[in-house]
Design a protein around this nucleic acid. Structure first.
Lengths: 298, 298
DNA sequence: GAGAACTCATGCATTTACGTATAGATAAGA
DNA sequence: TCTTATCTATACGTAAATGCATGAGTTCTC
């Protein structure tokens, strides 16, 4: 009874989760041939067929599905271990990863990181830009900046502040089409969309704007791209006041409307509370976000 | 965020469980330097101290203890995965491991294995001799032959039969010291002990024999050794009737006493029920043990 | 239907990790 | 106290795992 190779199981888990050897390889920092061989090694040594190689995709067999359940349990335990480990890490320096939405990551965070580096040169900050909420349980990031209050009890969250976003258009656009001020003006104005499932549209309507699907002249799922489209006079979109003020060539429209107000939560895992490096970054971000004095130029 | 090496975690788990790198290396089929490096690699990459190297022993730190908890969860999941995997194995051949007490392993099993090999040459049988109950959950064996009814619900057990054991002495001893027949005769007769905590003594007394600690002329925790001592005329011990009949030079004593009767259970894990190889061995053992027709010569 | 952009599997060179051997250190026993 | 039997940590040659390059196959698009 030879003990089985746990790294091969890790390869199996990632392959099953991502759906392909290539994607798993990217996640694990290995190459696709390596993963291919590791998965094949399990199948051979155990005498089971994990995947059905049907063309491009690797689809799990029923046995693979049963084994995946346990591999997933191993993965969760490994994640928890990693979490506790970094929490207990006595190392003062190291890398602390922060996940944020793109606009925060590109405009707000850089000055904060620069100031942090001056105070604590030993700590390297990894900025992770994600569209979806990064999973702190899986240690995809040490600290997350979110705009919704996290529900999980394992997480510690601090409400840093509320930020206001107003609607903006480019100066050129206003000069050509006029200055929309009221909510009813919105009906004949091109907006930059964010998603195509109506979520963003609903948010605008909920805010009082008279807009429909036809108002969207284009879509961009990243705020930086949205903002670039606004600056180039393509359409109108809301933006954090601090960022807008630092952007030349844009003017605020819908002046009568109240700002779109949303919170900034700083979230970390409870286990990481004991790590000194992470605490330092957490506090620095909390302080820096509370009073945004500096915004990166575009 | 680099993904951590699961094999290193496995090394940590075994080291913590066994208490030494050397013991862990033996269990994992690796060498002590390898384990030493793997554990050190965790400590370095995570920046934690898992063990306190105090002289010979490696004692867990408090951090190590916390991490061990999760590593153990990984180990349990890995064991469960391995269990399901071998159960689903389509391979007809392979190795099936059977654990048994030493006397069964050395005298009863060999003929059964020989007959099984004739019927199913593709299956290799691994006989594991353990003093303690082998842990089927941990896959220390595929099939276990036990003398107590297993309690765990995950295990499937079949009562194969009851075997009778009588007390025996060597012919030479009887010729020199006479033939003890009744339970009261036992008081002045040398017995071979099995353990030194009184468990075995209690069993003898419970059976009606008038013996005390002073009756034990020597101890042997293995039945084969006990039996050798009996044959050499050192003392008296009980033995399975089938084995005793196949051993020349021994005579039954305490003829008036009823036999020591104990059951033979054939136990396997529920998950392994689907493995054809294991089922074949299970049935062969059940049939062979039901009517023991052949006993290996000493 | 041809091409682009993916995917997975295989051959080959290299790096990594392993085992063997050894030294230092500790605990038990004569 | 000296011996013996452990255990862990390091040095070095080797074998195994990895990465790179390539080929074959599939899906999607134009």
């Amino acid at each position: 009874m030879q003990p089985l190779d746990w790294n091969q199981l890790r390869a199996f888990l990632e392959t099953a989760d991502t759906g392909s050897l290539s994607a798993a390889a990217r996640k694990l920092g290995l190459t696709q041939p390596t993963l291919s061989r590791q998965v094949a090694a399990i199948e051979q040594s155990m005498g089971v067929t994990l995947f059905e190689r049907v063309g491009k995709a690797m689809v799990l067999t029923s046995t693979g599905l049963d084994l995946l359940e346990h591999a997933r349990a191993m993965g969760s335990a490994a994640d928890a271990l990693s979490l506790v480990a970094t929490g207990r890490s006595q190392a003062v320096g190291g890398v602390v990863s922060v996940s944020a939405t793109d606009i925060l990551a590109s405009r707000i965070l850089p000055p904060l990181v620069r100031r942090l580096r001056e105070k604590a040169p030993g700590i390297a900050v990894e900025v992770i830009t994600t569209d979806s909420l990064s999973d702190l349980q899986r240690r995809e990031a040490d600290i997350a900046i979110r705009h919704v209050k996290p529900a999980q009890p394992d997480l510690i969250a601090r409400l840093v502040r509320d930020v206001d976003a107003y609607f903006y258009a480019s100066e050129a656009w206003v000069k050509a089409h006029g200055h929309p001020r009221t909510a009813t003006d919105a009906a004949s104005v091109p907006f930059i969309g964010s998603d195509r499932n109506g979520l963003y549209l609903g948010m605008l309507q909920h805010h009082g704007l008279r807009v429909t699907e036809t108002n969207f002249c284009c879509y961009a799922n990243h705020s930086v791209v949205q903002w670039s489209l606004v600056r180039d006079g393509v359409g109108i979109a809301p933006m954090m006041e601090e960022v807008a003020l630092a952007t030349p060539g844009v003017v605020r429209v819908f002046d009568d409307l109240p700002p779109v107000r949303f919170p900034i939560w700083l979230v970390s895992h409870r286990e990481l509370r004991t790590s000194r490096s992470i605490r330092v970054v957490f506090e620095a971000l909390a302080e820096g976000l509370a009073s945004i004095s500096d915004v990166s130029p575009d």
